[in-house]
Design a protein around this nucleic acid. Structure first.
Lengths: 265, 265
DNA sequence: CCCGTATATTACCCATGGGTAACAAATAGT
DNA sequence: ACTATTTGTTACCCATGGGTAATATACGGG
């Protein structure tokens, strides 16, 4: 029971006896990183604030310097994930290309998000554990995400890159597959998050695309609408800049955003 | 707060003052029906046994005549859902036809299950709320379901009805879409459960099928392997034999099965 | 060096809700 | 009818864990 599990010293800014003066936001983030991991591992109700605090080498009441309560921590975790999704959507919407092309871009990004903690929090946390106000915010955001998928599909139908279909149901089907990734994906498995993401981008659009995509049998003559589909991208990028990615995005998120400050006494 | 919400008298065998001698199993089932609905509506942790009991016109301790505790009720709800899935798989496996044909059959049945309470319980309940033993049982059962999907896909690849693909990922993608139905579907919406199910069966297999399915552009010449695909079925059956369906299946489930008896004092 | 602020700690409160004990009422069997 | 069993009820226990009050310690500025 008391096996400790002292977090690797690079994780917690509260080193037992050491310069414990870090920027406030860094600590806030550290709390959220620990909380989201614990919530995912043990479930929101299974995880206790005492345990969150213990993993950070502090005690429970100290958490209340940064958050009003457990449900606010949950919300903030979700919120970071949501900002990441919003970024995906914004980037994708800003790009040029067919509806299908945009849809695939979004799928890749969204799928990879689902393999990370903050992404998982979008689909594994229960809305009912949030306060009334926050729940409404989340619901609105969810509709926003759904709309993005539908819009790209509808757009694809219009420009001919997507077969005529019910955009609503197609979006549900695609989003369902993607969201489910957040339930089964475990880092350290056979495939990396990105590999899964790219595979899903093909698989999930194969049914509704007007053109074949695979290097299987037919050799798919690329149609006009597809020309802007895949700019060289970053080829085979160094891969696994993940930790840096995390801190970067988390820092940005904590920096701006309208999320509550905690301790506004 | 005290708005009552007395369940329609056709729901509870414990009518306030009336012949309250029903068979034990009927009562057990009534508990489960009420519990599963409440767990889905409020979440397992949000729902209290007091509330379950109240909706049945009894008091909390009376529940312990039938179940050892809250987590066992959760397990039993899940268990009924699992038996329904097992039936789907058994029926499907017993049928003849191509791998694709079986896959579609399973998808239709599974999807429709996801629109019902006991089906939803398979994907919305948290394994971590179960006892150690029950959790293992559930995990094993989940693997069994996953295997069914994979097997049909692999079989389809072999008999040529399905394009070569990674059966594992394809199964995840399909199951993900289906499981997600259990999160968004609400009876009373635009589509019936069956309509959604049939739409999904097409949509989810369109990408991996070797032949087109839709009455869209191409007129899909049905290949040899597909001949046994759709027997007339029951055409447009009277539809909505749901309540009867529920009681029937629930009765069977309570009748046989090795599930614990409750109060084995 | 002293004080104000931020941050953390110790010690506590207490609502909640799962679970139990003791007892009562209905039921079935002989 | 009398009794054993089942199936309820009322009244209670109590572990858990979120949240708070009072207080101590570190730090930065004048």
């Amino acid at each position: 029971m008391d096996d400790g599990h002292i977090p690797s010293s690079s994780q917690s800014p509260w080193l037992p006896f050491e310069s414990r003066r870090r920027a406030r936001d860094e600590k806030r983030e550290a709390v959220l990183r620990t909380a989201v991991a614990l919530f995912l591992e043990q479930g929101y109700h299974g995880a206790t604030l005492n345990e969150v605090a213990r993993q950070l080498n502090i005690t429970k009441p100290a958490l209340y310097n940064y958050f009003r309560g457990k449900d606010e921590i949950l919300y903030e975790c979700w919120s970071i994930g949501n900002e990441l999704v919003d970024d995906c959507i914004a980037e994708t919407s800003a790009s040029t290309g067919s509806g299908l092309s945009k849809l695939r871009k979004l799928i890749v990004r969204y799928a990879e998000l689902m393999t990370e903690d903050y992404g998982k929090s979008l689909v594994r946390f229960d809305l009912r554990d949030l306060s009334e106000d926050n729940r409404k915010i989340v619901q609105t955001a969810k509709r926003h995400i759904d709309r993005a998928f539908r819009d790209y599909i509808a757009q694809g139908v219009e420009d001919g890159s997507v077969k005529p279909c019910d955009a609503k149901l197609a979006a549900f089907a695609i989003a369902g597959s993607l969201n489910w990734i957040g339930h089964w994906f475990q880092p350290g498995g056979e495939m990396t998050g990105r590999a899964v993401a790219e595979e899903f981008a093909i698989r999930l659009t194969e049914g509704i695309a007007t053109t074949a995509t695979r290097k299987t049998a037919q050799k798919a003559a690329v149609p006009a609408a597809e020309k802007a589909d895949k700019p060289p991208r970053n080829g085979n990028a160094p891969r696994e800049d993940e930790s840096e990615h995390h801190t970067r995005t988390a820092a940005r998120a904590a920096g701006q955003s309208k999320r509550a400050r905690g301790r506004l006494r």
